[in-house]
Structures are given as structure tokens and as C-alpha cells.
């Protein structure tokens, strides 16, 4: 296929996924809206008023970047893992792409782009909700850094979700990772606190949590404060993207978990 044909194939995959996510918006968008409202209400308004400030910033403003990141991470991951698993397992719709001249790298790009779009859309919705809870006093240090970290984070977790979708042999395989791996990592990655408020031994554990680096960079974009230099966060993100692209390329190219 020429470049135009490749673009059409990519557009077809992305369009199909966007149509699907809007068709089932109650499953794709609403849950994050409801849970983020609850987080803002409980951690921001109820508990936040007692906590006061974190790193010199109002607690409600401190948790906003983490909660937006939580929405991006979970939505990007689950979108890619579920759509791929569904098309592989339930009705073998993946065969439609496998028999076509769409190359493996474009198949990866098509699936992860849906996850990135959903992650960014839901993250934007949660950000708009946060504006309501912060009475529009949302701090923005750098729009460029906020958007950059949002897109890169959505990309990382879309790629990770695709690995999960390729490997999963049952619907349990799709649900286990978000519940028992992703959620704890996000909660322990500094959504609700600064690592400087932890004892030294616990800080050590936080440094091996990749999500800490994403939240750190994203929070810097909003508040201009960070636990560690932002370039370290970018380096960790870049490394994760490179590693996950390589894993996905290998899996799709060889057909592991996909072809007999």
C-alpha cells in the first residue's frame, strides 16, 4: 500500500474505535466522570479542607493532576486491552485486519491510537470537572508540559494495554492487571501525596514505581512543583515507550498469542 492507503487503513481503525466508544459512552466515559466526582468530593472537599496544603499548594489543587492522570492511565489501558482482546477472542474480528495488507506496525498504531484518544478525552472531562470543584482557580504552569505528559502517558498505557490484550486468554486476564497492578501503582505513585511526606524507606519504593514519574511531570505542568527533576520523568516515559513498542512489535509481527 502507498502512504495514502496506509493512512486510510489507520483512519479506518481509529474511526471504528471512536464510533464504538461514543456508542457505548455509558461504559467508556461515564464511570470516570462519576469516580472523579467522588474523589474530588471526598479527597478534595471533605478531607482536603482538613489537610490544608501540600508542598505549599491547596490540597484540592494538588490532587487535580493526579486524578486527571488516573483517568488517563486507566482509560487508555482498558480501551486498548479490551478492544484488542474482544476482536481476538469474541468474534475474531482481528482476522479482518490480519488478512488485509495492513502491516503489523500499523495495526499496533491503529489500536493504541484509540486508547490515546479515549485517555485524552476522559482526562479532559475530569479536568473540566475539577475546574468546578476548584471554582475555576485551576493553576496552569505550562500547557505544553501538561499536554505533552498527557499524550505520552496515554501512549504508554495504550501500549501496555495492547500487550495485555495480546497475551490475555480470558476476560479475567484483562481485568486482573488493572485491578491488582495498575490501580495500586497509581495510588502509590503520588496521586494524593508528595513523596516527601513519606518515610525514607517508602520513598525508595516509590522511585521504582513508573507512574510516580508520570504524575510528577504532569503535576509540574500544572503547579510548577515537582518531587524530582522533570527531565527524569521524560526519560522514564521515553524508555517505557521504546520498550513497549519493541514488545508489541515482536508480539504482533510473530503472531504470538494471535496466530496459531
Amino acid at each position: 500500500m502507498d502512504t495514502f492507503g496506509l493512512w486510510i487503513s489507520f483512519y479506518t481503525m481509529l474511526r471504528k474505535d471512536i464510533v464504538r466508544m461514543f456508542r457505548i459512552w455509558v461504559q467508556t466515559f461515564l464511570p470516570s466522570v462519576v469516580t472523579s466526582c467522588l474523589y474530588f468530593l471526598i479527597f478534595g472537599t471533605v478531607l482536603g479542607s482538613r489537610i490544608g496544603e501540600m508542598q505549599g499548594v491547596d490540597y484540592m489543587l494538588f490532587v487535580v493532576p493526579g486524578l486527571v492522570m488516573l483517568a488517563i492511565v486507566t482509560n487508555a489501558y482498558s480501551n486498548t486491552s479490551f478492544t484488542f482482546f474482544q476482536s481476538k477472542f469474541f468474534f475474531r474480528g482481528i482476522d479482518e485486519i490480519l488478512v488485509s495488507p495492513t502491516p503489523p506496525w500499523l495495526l499496533i498504531a491503529g489500536f493504541i491510537s484509540g486508547g490515546v484518544v479515549r485517555g485524552i478525552l476522559v482526562g479532559t472531562i475530569v479536568l473540566l470537572i475539577s475546574a468546578f470543584f476548584t471554582s475555576l482557580h485551576l493553576a496552569i504552569h505550562s500547557v505544553f508540559i501538561i499536554f505533552g505528559f498527557a499524550v505520552l502517558t496515554a501512549l504508554v498505557f495504550s501500549l501496555a494495554g495492547l500487550v495485555n490484550g495480546v497475551y490475555a486468554k480470558s476476560i479475567d486476564g484483562i481485568n486482573l492487571v488493572p485491578t491488582f497492578v495498575l490501580t495500586p501503582l497509581v495510588y502509590l505513585g503520588g496521586v494524593f501525596y508528595s513523596i516527601h511526606s513519606l518515610p525514607v524507606w517508602a520513598q525508595g519504593f516509590t522511585y521504582i514505581n513508573p507512574i510516580f514519574y508520570l504524575i510528577n511531570g504532569f503535576r509540574y505542568g500544572f503547579l510548577g512543583i515537582a518531587d524530582i527533576p522533570i527531565w527524569i520523568s521524560l526519560a522514564v516515559l521515553g524508555g517505557m515507550i521504546a520498550a513497549l513498542i519493541a514488545i508489541n512489535w515482536y508480539l504482533i509481527r510473530t503472531g504470538l498469542g494471535l496466530k496459531q
Binding site: M1, F4, I8, S9, T12, K16, S100, P101
Partner: peptide, 12 residues
């Protein structure tokens, strides 16, 4: 859509 999407995967 099923038929049109299949065409898309062929770059049509």
C-alpha cells in the same frame, strides 16, 4: 460498515 471498514484496511 462491516464491508466499508474492510475496504479501509485495504487502503480504499
Amino acid at each position: 460498515n462491516i464491508v466499508v471498514n474492510q475496504a479501509g484496511y485495504y487502503g480504499i
